[in-house]
Design a protein around this nucleic acid. Structure first.
Length: 285
DNA sequence: GTGTTTGTTATCAA
DNA sequence: CTTGATAACAAACA
């Protein structure tokens, strides 16, 4: 599940490898993955260059030299793996070996003039690539995303406003990209643990002290996960095909039935907002 | 065959 | 009008 830290890890990796390299060819193995017509997609990209890679929430936005952006969303199982000239493996999706040589789930390959390739792999085919013009990119950014954590827009003033007059659960609140962008199922659960708040609590009933905890916990959790190059739980690998190391640092996600690292009580698991939800009933109130 | 995994959106309900 | 809750999608695995 690539969430903000995983997508940011990929953004930083690819920013070191693919910028300003001329694209020479596009191989589309799964048409459904590309949200433009094949003809348009290929003609826009071939001969073009990627100038920089931006990110909003979990969405990557690759700025093209000839104008417009290539938007890439990994959804649940997408991977973006760069391979230089001498490395021919695409990187796979195997649970045990994130970087094995299987190309079974490769959907699109972007080829560069130096022989390097960028593989877009996606087991479940939820992810997509879409070329948009500058205007549409701005519209997507404006309409789809709320406050971006880890930026100067994430202020107490803007964040605390979100808690006003809301009836939903704190879990659904944290997952809502239009309010705060970038948290997914893993980091929403982790944020609740860090703040000491049960995920099923109503947003409107979260105390001011707890709101402040969330305000400090969210950046703290995301920054640590980025430092550890993301959580590889199912299929995430970074821009070079390597696994992230943050899984062992998680306090509640994927720890149902295990002991809480702080108080030793058993981590509980329920379903909330349609998602698996993990918490410690002792540490979270 | 059944239940599980989740990011996002469509759809329906209040 | 707003907001919320839920189903649906996709594919593989235990």
């Amino acid at each position: 599940m690539p969430e903000l830290p995983e997508v940011e890890t990929i953004r930083r990796d690819l920013s070191k490898s693919i910028l300003r390299h001329t694209i020479t060819a596009i191989e589309i193995r799964d048409q459904k993955t590309v949200k433009n017509s094949v003809k348009f997609f290929i003609s826009e990209l071939v001969g073009n260059k990627i100038l920089k890679i931006e990110r909003r929430g979990k969405l990557l936005m690759l700025k093209l030299a000839k104008g417009g952006y290539l938007l890439i969303h990994l959804k649940m199982t997408g991977q973006l793996i760069y391979r230089g000239k001498n490395k021919i493996v695409a990187g796979g999706h195997s649970l045990n070996s994130a970087a094995d040589s299987s190309e079974r789930f490769t959907r699109v390959i972007i080829k560069f003039n130096d022989g390097a390739k960028l593989f877009f792999n996606d087991l479940r085919r939820f992810g997509y690539l879409k070329i948009v013009d500058d205007k549409e990119k701005e519209a997507v950014v404006k309409n789809s995303f709320g406050i971006e954590p880890l930026t100067t827009n994430f202020t107490w003033e803007s964040f605390s406003l979100l808690f006003k007059k809301r009836a939903t659960t704190i879990k659904a609140f944290l997952l809502n990209q239009k309010l705060i962008s970038g948290l997914g199922n893993i980091y929403a659960d982790e944020a609740c643990y860090c703040a000491g708040v049960k995920p099923n609590r109503r947003v409107g009933k979260v105390t001011l002290a707890e709101q402040k905890k969330f305000f400090s916990c969210i950046p703290k959790i995301l920054n640590l996960a980025i430092k550890n190059r993301g959580t590889t739980f199912y299929s995430f690998v970074d821009g070079t095909g390597e696994r992230g190391s943050h899984l062992d640092f998680l306090k509640v996600y994927n720890r149902a039935g295990k002991k809480c690292k702080r108080c030793n009580s058993i981590i509980q698991k329920t379903k909330l907002a349609g998602r698996g939800t993990h918490f410690c009933s002792q540490c979270q109130k």
